[in-house]
């Protein structure tokens, strides 16, 4: 498996797709951080000073979305682009039958490719985070504290898992479909559904299951909201957004978008401790990992059963 890993990693770094993706994400990240820093600096009076550094990643400004938003949107694309042709490309160029006749287990091929993709994404993400951190440091002139660094680290891991899911999905489709264009389209279709259509679907279903009107009781409105949010959480994108917002914004204390006034009164003001934030997003992280595992098991089962014939 190690041999597959190193070969694939070298392939990624030598490939144009890596260079292009890196460029795009870096540009978007720099611009998002720049506008965020500007917003922070100009509104320095109104904003609380705690965890200012983290706000670099969550603040949007000047009509441009935040870095988190960019990542939640482009992250899937990176994962898919890295994974969609992992197996079927080898099949069509005739190298797969040569590789599987070497003395290695078949799953080592998938594992090696997945880990190499994950490593490439990790290296890409880490360098972008470091670059924009340094950039932001100069812009706002505030040094991150220990907890901020810890939160950034967790953010990095959550992002990696999130993109890892899309990578696993891409690889799954590269096993299922013989043609690379089909697998790319299938993966992109899933991404569009989860990123764009899920909120419409969730809205429609929520209104059907728990209809609300202007005269609705509070319970009914809450129920509608609950259904909506639970459907939204099917989407890995929602999971990612909720998780990273909680981690990078310590004042987040609940993931419900609608809270009653009595609940708010009961809340202690002030940021959440790191451990508490983690507890809040733990289910999200578990769900994302579970999704990866599901993609993997389907890939394994299919790949093991597939006939390896050239042409």
């Amino acid at each position: 498996m190690r041999a597959v890993f190193w070969k694939e990693l070298a392939d990624y770094f030598g490939s144009w797709r890596f260079v292009i993706l890196f460029g795009i994400i870096l540009l978007a990240a720099l611009y998002a951080t720049y506008t965020a820093a500007q917003t922070i600096v100009t509104n320095v009076q109104e904003t609380p000073t705690e965890f200012v550094f983290l706000r670099l990643f969550t603040t949007s400004g000047g009509g441009l979305p935040s870095f988190i938003w960019f990542l939640s949107f482009f992250g899937p694309l990176i994962g898919i682009i890295f994974g969609f042709d992992a197996i079927n490309e080898e099949r069509s160029q005739g190298t797969l039958s040569r590789i599987v006749s070497q003395p290695l287990f078949r799953d080592a091929i998938i594992n090696g490719k997945f880990l190499a993709g994950l490593a490439a994404i990790g290296i890409m993400l880490a360098s972008i985070l470091l670059i924009i951190s340094g950039f932001g440091l100069r812009m706002i002139g505030v040094v991150p504290g220990g907890e901020e660094i810890a939160r950034l680290l967790i953010f990095f891991i959550v992002s990696l898992v999130y993109m890892g899911f899309w990578l696993a999905l891409g690889i799954l489709f590269s096993v299922l479909f013989r043609r690379t264009t089909t697998s790319a389209f299938a993966a992109i279709a899933i991404w569009i559904v989860f990123a764009l259509f899920i909120s419409m679907i969730a809205g429609v279903v929520a209104d059907r299951v728990a209809p609300v009107s202007d005269q609705s009781e509070m319970e009914e409105v809450l129920r509608n909201r609950e259904v909506y949010e639970n459907i939204m959480r099917i989407s890995p994108t929602t999971l990612f957004e909720e998780a990273t917002t909680t981690i990078l914004n310590p004042s987040t204390r609940t993931l419900r978008s609608l809270v009653t006034r009595s609940e708010v009164t009961g809340m202690i003001s002030g940021p959440l401790a790191l451990g508490q934030s983690l507890r809040l997003v733990w289910p999200h992280l578990t769900a994302l990992v579970a999704l990866i595992v599901i993609c993997f098991s389907i890939s394994y089962v299919n790949f093991m059963r597939q006939e390896i014939r050239a042409g």
């Binding site: 030598g14 160029q93 005739g94 190298t95 039958s97 040569r98 006749s101 070497q102 003395p103 290695l104 287990f105 014939r309 050239a310 042409g311």
Partner: peptide
Amino acid sequence: PLKVKRITGYLPENVGFYGD
């Protein structure tokens, strides 16, 4: 299968290589 593959070479029809 691994022991077999260790001592057996297989040249498939339409063999392919990594072009780059």
